[in-house]
Write a protein that binds this DNA or RNA. Structure first.
Lengths: 346, 346
DNA sequence: ATGAAAGCGCTAACAG
DNA sequence: CTGTTAGCGCTTTCAT
């Protein structure tokens, strides 16, 4: 590969001049600039980003740390992050931690050694202290770590309330909740939202809440048990779409019709929710927008540009599909006015 | 951040000595090593990977170029690549090209400037010529580019034959094919496999092959038209799972029962295929293994270790689920002996 | 407007 | 066994 020296020699100027035209700063005569450009072209010269990084102490790269890209929530997020980063001239290092603290800290260390300018984390295990030590901007997505760390999340509680009250509106009278892990904030917030809506209903029992752990397999099992214990249940709010899909399978397995006998609503808005039969009604997060927002935020922090707010709470949206329909149990189901905001393309 | 100089000063030795203990090469007295280690600990020193890269002309990073991480085939692949790379001490830059040549070439250029040691591409648009210019190892996954570029693929034709003959075995007598894009090799190979099995059957018509373009929306439309034009069709081999899911939806929409009236089999083995009702029978690719294999291959090339073969063609596996069952059309369906190798976990 | 030269943090001869 | 030193390729004062 040609270096800046080769270009300088070829153009008959000094490396400083070449550097000047490369970065278009400082004065440089139009004629000499032409010579340099020509030399660059002839040699097919590309500046060495590593050398530049070493000097400038910045690398135009960021780290993206997710638990597991295979989790259907993350591909779209990762795509948004990469798109936005690329647009702003940054490359992204891609890391999976499986929610494992050591792995996470190890990655952070490596990223730091590689001079990343900032990092985006989706993590529950990261402490504020560790982040401080890094001395580079860190932003959190989907999970709030501490008040000091800039964060992009969605209105989980509000979404959960929306889901639950929607089930009430279409006529469900015994609504259960398939909740996520107790150590994950957004799972607790969603459970809170559910409780807010039905916690004080005369029919409510704490055993209407089942642990699904955000995983399909567990959710299937939990739903089967739930429905066997409580055959009166006519609506389920699952705290994520994966569990909602599990719930659909469970219902199918024990012969409950969805949505006729049992309405099911999920949370997230992952594309897998459109693969099911019936297609899943869900509270959709603006996943791509979240990715864009965190990345914008991070880049602003890196480039020390002013940021308005460091805590963004984005809105969620009810997408009505087939897994919920007005229940015709003539006990008072009301008309529901929501339109289908689905992104179905056919 | 502390530098090697700081450590040297703190330990009362020269930077060379520090470098020696860092890289554990060259002789260094055990006592001085201890002093150095202690200084490193005290200063919480971490060597600067950029400076090291600059000197060594290698960065311990690789690039991963995929069309779109949102495409359900790629998250698992990306995960495998990242896992394997990490295990071998490499980080991975993550790039989405949308199959766009300019974007792809642009990424390659940037990666090159950033000194990546090698790159893994999933691309149809890359030319051998471009790869040559790079002067670093490049390996291709899922798509063969040219003979010179080391590649990991699966036995597409064989898998397609397996899918088609399986449909015959369970009693289908009018088997259609939902094919992928004409410019993608694996789509053509899968179509070839299908043709091999049924192309000369008395009932065969070229209009039994529909273009689905690997996309759900298109596949739904194509399947509806196909079934309206040819109501006699009792089996569909879709060239990927996403289209197979589309076919299931199409069948559902026009009131054909799957699998009773219409058997559907996909290709890929993505997890989404387990979210559907009925769950999808498919020809599964060993996606994770493919990722591991390309990464191993790439790292060997980078480190100039001997590689046995530079063209790996992995086996696919039939996973029987619910979307295909022995057709009871008493016209001669035979027993089929395949076991369920499904990864269903419940 | 241009060039010389120092230095980013590290590694690897080479000398001792 | 350890230290001195010359780079890796680039950017940026500081002179001129």
């Amino acid at each position: 590969m040609a270096t800046i020296r080769d270009v300088a020699k070829q153009a008959g100027v000094s490396v400083a001049t070449v550097s000047r035209v490369l970065n278009s700063n400082g004065y440089v005569n139009n004629e000499t600039k032409k010579k340099v450009d020509e030399a660059i072209r002839q040699l097919n010269y590309k500046p060495n980003a590593v050398a530049r990084s070493l000097y400038k102490k910045t690398s135009k790269t960021i780290g993206l740390i997710v638990p597991d890209i295979v989790n259907p929530f993350f591909p779209e997020l990762a795509r948004a992050v990469e798109d936005t980063a690329h647009k702003k001239g940054y490359n992204v290092f891609f890391c999976n931690t499986d929610e494992n603290v050591e792995k996470e800290e190890h990655y952070l260390e490596i990223l730091l050694q590689k001079y990343v300018d900032g990092v985006i984390v989706a993590s529950n295990t990261l402490t504020a202290e560790k982040v401080k030590e890094l001395n580079i901007p860190v932003v959190s997505i989907d999970r709030k770590i501490t008040a000091e760390i800039p964060t992009v999340v969605v209105k989980n509680k509000e979404g959960a309330q929306k889901a639950t009250s929607y089930l009430k509106e279409i006529g469900c009278e015994r609504i259960a909740h398939l909740r996520g892990p107790h150590h994950i904030d957004n799972a607790n917030e969603r459970a809170d939202g559910y409780l807010e809506e039905v916690g004080s209903a005369p029919w409510f029992q704490s055993s209407y809440i089942a642990d699904g752990n955000y995983v399909m397999k567990t959710a299937i099992q939990a739903t089967v048990e739930l429905l066997e214990r409580h055959p009166e249940i006519d609506g389920i709010f699952a705290a994520n779409d994966v569990m909602a899909i599990g719930a659909v399978k469970a219902a199918h397995r024990i012969g409950k019709m969805v949505p006729e006998e049992l309405a099911i609503i999920g949370f997230d808005g992952i594309s897998m929710a459109e693969a099911t039969t019936p297609e899943l009604t869900t509270i959709a997060q603006p996943i791509y927008d979240m990715g864009t927002a965190v990345t914008d935020l991070l880049v602003k922090l890196i480039e020390k540009k002013p940021v308005e707010r460091t805590f963004l709470e984005l809105k969620v949206e009810l997408i009505e599909r087939e897994s919920t329909r007005k229940q015709n149990n003539n006990k008072g189901g009301r008309e529901h006015g929501a339109k289908d905001h689905s992104s179905r393309q056919y």
